[in-house]
Computed example of a mutant assay.
Amino acid sequence: MSSTTRPVWMEKPTALGNAAKGGVLLVIVGLVVFPFLLVVSTSLASRQEITRNGGFVLWPTDPTLSAYTTVLSGGVVSRAVLVSLGVTLVGTVFSLTATVLTAYGLSRRGTWGQRPLLMVVLLTFLFTPGIIPSYLMVKQLGLLNTYASLILPTAISAFNVIIVRGFFQSIPGELIDSARIDGAGEWRILATIVLPLSKAVVAVVGLFYAVGYWNSFFTALLYLSDSDKWPLQLVLRSYVLQGAPLGGLDTGATEALPPQQAIQMAVVVLAIIPILCVYPFVQRHFTKGVLTGAVKG
C-alpha cells in the first residue's frame, strides 16, 4: 500500500454507500416505530375497527379516547400511576444521593475503610442474595407491604457506583487540592467542584435508576400483598397478561365498554409516556455520559 493511500474509513462515502446507510436506518426506524404506532392506534380504535382487523389497528379511521377515559375513570390505574410516580421520584433521589456519596468516598484516597468497602461492592457482582434471602431480610425489617420495600432492597447498584467512582477519579486532583488549600471541606468540594463537572454521568445514572423504578414490578409482586398499593407496572401486568379486570369498571355492561384490546393498549401507552417525556431532556447528557472514557486524549 502506498504511503499516500488513506484508509478505507477515511475515504469520502459514495452515493451508493449513503443510500445503503439510509436504507438501513429507515429499516431500523420502521422496526422501532411500527410497534409503537400499532399500540397507540389500537388504543384509539373503535370496537368495529378492532373486530374487523382481527385485534390490532394500524391507523384508526374514527379515533376515540373512550379507552383512556374508561381506564382513568376506574381509579385503579390513576392510583397506580401516582404510586409509580412517587416511588420513582423518591427512589431515584435516594438512590442517586446514596450512589454519589458512596462513589465519592471510594474515589478519595485515604478514606477510612475505603478498600474493605470497595471489596464489598465488587463482591456483589459475583454473589447475589437471591429471592428467598432478600424476602426474609425485608420481612425481618418489617418492610413487607410498604412502599419502602420497593426502594430499599435495590437502592444502590454496584455497577452504577463503580461507574460514578471511575468518573470522579478522572477529575484532576489539582482541582481538589487547590480547593482544600482554600479551606474547602469535603462537602463543599463535592457540591461545588465534583458534581458540576459530573453532570453527564449523574444524569445517566439517574436515568437508569428512574427507568428501573418505573418499570419494576417483580419487587411489588414479591413484597406487596395489598393491591391498593400496586404500582402501574404490576397493574399493567395483571391486566394485560392475566386479563384481570380493572377495579371500578362495570364488567357486566361489556357492550358499553371499549374493547379489551383498546383498554390494554391504553394502559401500555400510559405506562411509557412518562419515560418518553423525560428522555429528551437528558438525551445529551446520556450520550456524553455513555461516551465518557471511550476516547482518551
Score class of each variant (00 low, 15 high):
residue 1 M to Y: 12
residue 3 S to Y: 15
residue 6 R to W: 11
residue 9 W to C: 00
residue 11 E to A: 14
residue 13 P to V: 08
residue 14 T to M: 08
residue 15 A to M: 11
residue 17 G to Q: 14
residue 20 A to T: 01
residue 21 K to I: 02
residue 26 L to A: 15
residue 29 V to Q: 06
residue 32 V to S: 09
residue 32 V to L: 15
residue 33 V to D: 01
residue 35 P to Q: 08
residue 36 F to Q: 05
residue 36 F to D: 06
residue 37 L to R: 08
residue 40 V to E: 09
residue 47 R to F: 03
residue 48 Q to T: 08
residue 49 E to R: 08
residue 52 R to S: 09
residue 52 R to L: 09
residue 53 N to Q: 07
residue 54 G to F: 05
residue 58 L to R: 09
residue 61 T to C: 12
residue 62 D to G: 10
residue 62 D to A: 15
residue 64 T to E: 06
residue 64 T to P: 04
residue 70 T to Q: 14
residue 71 V to L: 04
residue 73 S to K: 14
residue 74 G to L: 11
residue 75 G to N: 08
residue 75 G to Y: 06
residue 77 V to A: 10
residue 78 S to W: 13
residue 79 R to P: 00
residue 81 V to S: 02
residue 82 L to S: 10
residue 84 S to L: 09
residue 87 V to I: 13
residue 91 G to I: 05
residue 94 F to M: 14
residue 98 A to D: 04
residue 100 V to P: 06
residue 105 G to D: 06
residue 107 S to M: 07
residue 108 R to K: 07
residue 108 R to T: 00
residue 113 G to T: 01
residue 116 P to S: 05
residue 117 L to V: 05
residue 117 L to Y: 13
residue 117 L to F: 15
residue 118 L to E: 12
residue 118 L to G: 02
residue 118 L to V: 00
residue 119 M to T: 08
residue 120 V to N: 07
residue 120 V to M: 12
residue 121 V to Q: 09
residue 122 L to E: 03
residue 126 L to M: 12
residue 127 F to N: 04
residue 133 P to I: 04
residue 136 L to W: 03
residue 139 K to H: 11
residue 142 G to Q: 05
residue 145 N to R: 09
residue 145 N to M: 07
residue 147 Y to I: 00
residue 147 Y to K: 11
residue 156 I to T: 01
residue 164 V to Q: 05
residue 167 F to Q: 01
residue 167 F to H: 11
residue 168 F to S: 07
residue 171 I to Q: 05
residue 171 I to H: 10
residue 174 E to A: 15
residue 174 E to H: 14
residue 174 E to Q: 15
residue 177 D to A: 15
residue 177 D to K: 14
residue 180 R to H: 08
residue 180 R to A: 05
residue 181 I to E: 00
residue 181 I to M: 10
residue 190 L to C: 02
residue 190 L to E: 04
residue 193 I to V: 08
residue 198 S to I: 02
residue 200 A to G: 06
residue 203 A to Q: 09
residue 204 V to M: 15
residue 204 V to S: 09
residue 210 A to G: 02
residue 211 V to Q: 15
residue 213 Y to N: 12
residue 217 F to C: 03
residue 218 F to E: 02
residue 222 L to S: 01
residue 222 L to N: 02
residue 224 L to H: 01
residue 225 S to Q: 11
residue 225 S to D: 07
residue 229 K to F: 11
residue 230 W to F: 15
residue 232 L to F: 12
residue 233 Q to V: 03
residue 235 V to M: 03
residue 236 L to K: 04
residue 237 R to D: 00
residue 239 Y to M: 11
residue 241 L to Y: 14
residue 242 Q to T: 01
residue 242 Q to S: 10
residue 245 P to F: 08
residue 247 G to Y: 12
residue 247 G to S: 14
residue 249 L to M: 12
residue 250 D to Q: 09
residue 251 T to W: 12
residue 252 G to M: 14
residue 255 E to K: 08
residue 255 E to W: 11
residue 258 P to Q: 06
residue 260 Q to S: 09
residue 261 Q to T: 03
residue 262 A to Y: 06
residue 266 A to T: 01
residue 269 V to C: 05
residue 270 L to Q: 03
residue 270 L to H: 01
residue 271 A to W: 07
residue 275 I to W: 12
residue 277 C to V: 14
residue 279 Y to H: 06
residue 280 P to K: 11
residue 282 V to C: 14
residue 283 Q to L: 10
residue 283 Q to W: 13
residue 284 R to Y: 10
residue 288 K to G: 04
residue 288 K to T: 00
residue 288 K to C: 00
residue 289 G to S: 11
residue 290 V to N: 05
residue 293 G to W: 11
residue 294 A to R: 13
residue 295 V to C: 06
